[in-house]
């Protein structure tokens, strides 16, 4: 099964490498948000910026991620190639994992490119907190991709798919976003990870539950 997952992942990487549609949409949108809010916070006190900026960062990642998920859907809708994956003699959970890992990877890379720009604009230093923040970035993005991939599978069968995805998906992914924002604020304020184990547990449990459940039910989601 791992080979099949890797094949699906590789196919998405190759497609994205050639079109750059998913990555560029996510990166430009997130960049725009970070830049625009920088002007809004220009005269705000430093403490307020430190409190609000991680939330802003995750809002940018969330909406940029939705753009990415819509693009990921579009690849499988064109020529109805998702049906070709459904026809293949593989566990449909493998299709889910392949797509989920691709969504995670593209989103995570665009986040990594936004972080230095964010650090410069908001005068943050990530050097002291880089590894804890990277862990939060991985956990948050994984949860986002886990939920986003299953919900984009649901939305793809609806007529108003581009509208349906955020409507269905955002209420479910809220715990991940809140968890990621809470931990990001504390990490960037210099708190050690052991001081926020409750939030980290929530992120880890959410990721594990959603990946497992989605893996098991993806077959039913895809079949009409």
């Amino acid at each position: 099964m791992l080979k099949k997952i890797a094949r699906i992942l590789w196919k998405d990487i190759l497609t994205e490498f050639r079109t750059r549609e998913m990555f560029s949409a996510m990166f430009v949108f997130a960049l725009l948000m970070v830049v625009v809010f920088n002007f809004a916070f220009e005269n705000a006190p430093r403490d307020s910026i430190l409190q609000a900026a991680p939330g802003l960062l995750w809002v940018a990642f969330t909406f940029a991620g939705i753009l990415g998920l819509n693009r990921s859907n579009a690849i499988e809708r064109e020529n109805m190639s998702m049906q070709a994956l459904m026809l293949a003699p593989i566990d449909r959970g493998a299709v889910y994992l392949g797509k989920m890992l691709a969504n995670f990877l593209f989103m995570w890379i665009s986040e990594l490119l936004i972080i230095p720009i964010f650090a410069v604009l908001y005068n943050y230093s990530f050097t002291a907190h880089f590894w804890p923040f990277l862990l939060i970035l991985v956990l948050g993005t994984l949860g986002f991709s886990a939920v986003g991939t299953i919900f984009s599978g649901i939305a793809v069968n609806t007529k108003m798919r581009d509208v349906m995805l955020p409507i269905l998906f955002l209420p479910v992914v809220v715990p991940v976003v809140i968890g990621a924002v809470e931990t990001s604020i504390r990490v960037l304020a210099g708190e050690p990870l052991r001081g926020m184990t409750d939030w980290l547990k929530i992120l880890v449990v959410f990721d594990v539950i959603f990946i497992t459940v989605s893996f098991l039910v993806f077959e039913y989601v895809l079949e009409e």
Binding site: K11, L14, I75, N79, S81, Q83, A84
Partner: peptide, 13 residues
């Protein structure tokens, strides 16, 4: 093997 009016191909490959 299944054939329909859709080609089931990836356009960018």
């Amino acid at each position: 093997g299944f054939i329909s009016h859709a080609t089931y191909l990836y356009s960018d490959l």
